[in-house]
Structures are given as C-alpha cells and as structure tokens.
Design a protein around this nucleic acid. Structure first.
Lengths: 233, 233
DNA sequence: AGAAATAATATGTACGTACATATTATCTTT
DNA sequence: AAAGATAATATGTACGTACATATTATTTCT
C-alpha cells in the first residue's frame, strides 16, 4: 500500500481502518498527521482528509485541531437507521399494504402531548388514530397528534385515502425529530385493534418532529407482535 | 443569499435545505446542476458538491451521474443511533454501573447461533451470560456467544472484571454488524434475573458482528422494564 | 510563580483545474 | 425499426495552493 498508483480516498479509508483493526494503531493512539500520511500513502492531503473525516463520522477516530487525530478510545458506533414511510416498509417486505382511518377529531391536546411538543393546552390540534395493514393483517397502530397551527393544510387532507404518516412526509418536512424505542404490554384496546391478546409484548416507536422551534407532530406507533426493526452498522 | 461574501459548504447546505422545506423545490423535482448552483450562490463547484453530497447522505436528495440531482420523492430519513458500551450508557445517565458474570462455558453452539454467525455446529465457542446493573438495579441481561476461532485471546480475558461487551469492543473490532430491535414477554428465568414478573414486556436488542466474512459474536441483550432507546434525526 | 500575550501547529475548508465514470441521448448500421 | 456504436453531460474525485480556526506550547510581563 505504498505510493505508486494513485490512491482514492476509499483506499486510504480502508487502509487506515485496516491498521486500526490489526491494532497497528490501538484505541487512544495518536496517528500520523495528514501531511505525513499523505506522503506515506502517495496522495494529496485533501484525499487523506476526506478519508479521515469519513472515519471520524463513523466513530472510529477522534479529531481535534492542533491536537491531531486519535483512534477512538471507546468506539461509540453509529448505526444507521432508515425510517421509511410505513407503506414503503410494508411493500419492501413484499407484502400488500392497506390502511384504515379509525377516527379523526379536532380538539385540544392532553397534558403529555403539550409537554412533548411544547404547545399550550388550548392549542388547535388534530388527533388521529389509524391502522396500517400488511397482507390484510394488522401491522401498526398509529396514534397521532398534529399541530394545526404548524400545518394548517392538513385539515383539507383526505385522511381516509392517505395516511397522516405519509401526508406529513410529503407536506410538512421537518428540521429535526426525536425517536424513542421501547417495549410495552398490550392494553385491552390495543390488543383488540392489533388482533392479539392483552399483555402481549409490543414494539413501540414514539416520534416527535419539529420545524425549528415549532412542534409539528407527535406520534405513537405500536407494532404488531413479532415486529423487528433492523439496523446495520 | 446571493453571491457577495464567500460561502461555506454549510451555508449552501442550509440554503438548499431551506428551499426544500419551503417547497421551492418539491419532492421529485430536479434541482439546478452543481455548476449553476455554484454560480448562483457565488462559490466554487467543490463547495456545492460537498453540500449536496452531505444532503444526499442525509436522505434529502437523490443524485445520479448525468441524470442530475432530485429532491428525494420518499424521504427515507436516516436516524443516527449511538451504540455505546453498556457501562458508558449507564454512566451517561448519571447512574452507578456494576456488572456481574452469571456463567461462562466453552462449548459447541446451538443451531440458531450457527445460523446467525454461519459457523459449524462443532465450532469452539464461548457462551457467557451476565448482568449489567445501574444503581444496583438490573439494567440489562446479556446472553452472548463468542467464536474462539475468531478471537482466541478471549479465553485469557478475566470476564469477572470486564464484561464481554466491553472486552470485545477493545480487542475485537468488527467491520460490520447487524442489530435487531424487538419486544418480547419475559420468560420465567429472564423475569427472575431482571427482578420483574414473567410476561412483562422487555426491550430486546440482538446484535451480530463480523470481521469481513468471519462471524465474531452474537449477543442477545435484554433490557429491564422501562428502558427506552433514543435516537435523533 | 502566575497571568497574559504570542507563536506554533494540525485540522478545516475554499478554490480552480483536470480527468474519471456512469448514464442518457444521438447517430449509424443493418 | 431494432440493435449497436458514439457522443454528450452531470456528478465523482484527485491535486495543489491558500488561508481560517481552534488549540497547545512558549515566551513575556508583572
């Protein structure tokens, strides 16, 4: 891996990763500076920079100006988690997607939603519950609150036809959001909707999205038994 | 946001994102090519390239050579999920971490582990179960299989002192891994270990890691009731 | 000795140029 | 008209240079 042919940033990336894996450079170690590495590998500093930047964002390296670049002491690996629209997730499994609106109501939010989205108890909001199906079987139960102030046009959306989930993705892009994953025992009602037994362990995803400081929507997504969320690292 | 002062790739990033959010460019739209954008915003193509590359990796844009750059039609948002060592996760919550090895045995793997790691049924493996505690209370129950062929030195590790979780992070870096999140009802034994009741809904994380084509370890991480995994988007 | 000012240094990024590569569009040929 | 060869084009990336910025090391001043 010495000089000669031109190096790509990918090859530099791989070579550095190899040295970390083979423990040539151990956790905590200071690695050579960009200029030295560039010389060593026979490429420009920009190329090394790109490779090291990538490795840092993947969690393998810690970089600081003047202090240099070190192998991460406690590699906090950053897994990538794709959050697609429910319909695409179902279709991606090769199953037939269907959706049904359970109910939709315009009203003021309960305390926990106010806290989630930092809105007042008198806010004008839309409360929607719906069921997403895969091959005719319940797949996910959605319980969602949408701020009408933040997305006024949602009152005109035909939520019988398009799910709030999908409508929001298309019409209310957000700048940031939080997701919480947890496990809960199915309540009487939840079990009925998802056609399972009360007490069954269910995978819960709670999502809140914001446009800058404005809370847009807060959703409670409850998956049918057996659901597994995959992530690669 | 027109010409004049020098633009940073961040400012280009933000401006493009603004145009997507304000729907100047709608999902599916073709946006101007790099050279045009660079001219429009008063910066070099490399700067625009960096910004658009970033936006594409965040899932906002789809880019293809010759075809150009489009606003993602179905924004598959990529959430970032930090996977720290358990100890750091507990300490990060301001709680006191403790760890106890339950048992450790060298033996051949059961079928499901063979399938997970693609190893033979005669493989030399280490089976470890342990309990991680936060403020003295059960936090996570770990059931792990480690391939001794892949990481021979683990037999010398003192797994009473350091958890397999942490030892592996320090001594057996992996190139890729899979994570599955799900929810399960606690079995009799699991409930006893985590000091809860059988049937309680528990958050389960199943992790398998690889070094190239070699399976290293497969772990079943079962969290105490109430656990929530956070992710930002 | 301790504080403040100053220098040194590794990474961060912007620019212009050049060429590579994937993909689409166009032109030939049969 | 279908198939195959060829040109056109937008993104991808490598390079060298220049300067910005954060942080550490050193020196100066009190």
């Amino acid at each position: 891996m010495n000089s000669l042919e031109q190096q790509s940033w990918q090859s530099v990336h791989d070579e550095v990763l190899r040295r970390i894996h083979t423990r040539v450079w151990k956790p905590g170690d200071l690695i050579p500076k960009e200029v030295e590495l560039a010389e060593q590998l026979g490429c420009a500093r920009a190329t090394v920079n790109r490779a090291l930047r990538e490795l840092a964002s993947e969690g393998f390296l810690d970089r600081r100006r003047k202090a240099g670049t070190r192998v991460a002491a406690h590699p906090v690996r950053r897994a990538k988690l794709d959050i697609p629209v429910v319909r695409l997730e179902v279709e991606g499994r090769g199953q037939k997607y269907a959706y049904g609106l359970l109910f939709s109501e315009r009203r003021t939010p309960p305390p926990e939603i106010c806290a989630n989205l930092s809105v007042t108890a008198e806010s004008d909001m839309l409360h929607i519950t719906s069921l997403h199906l895969a091959d005719g079987k319940p797949f996910m139960f959605e319980d969602r609150w949408v701020s009408i102030a933040a997305t006024p046009t949602i009152v005109e959306a035909d939520l019988e036809k398009i799910s709030a989930n999908e409508w929001l993705v298309l019409h209310a892009p957000y700048t940031r959001g939080d997701i919480y994953f947890s496990a809960v025992n199915a309540t009487e009602t939840e079990a009925k909707v998802l056609r399972t037994d009360p007490g069954t362990s269910l995978f819960l995803m709670e999502r809140t999205t914001w446009e800058n400081q404005t809370g847009i929507t807060s959703a409670r997504l409850l998956f049918a038994p057996g659901y597994r969320k995959h992530s690669a690292i």
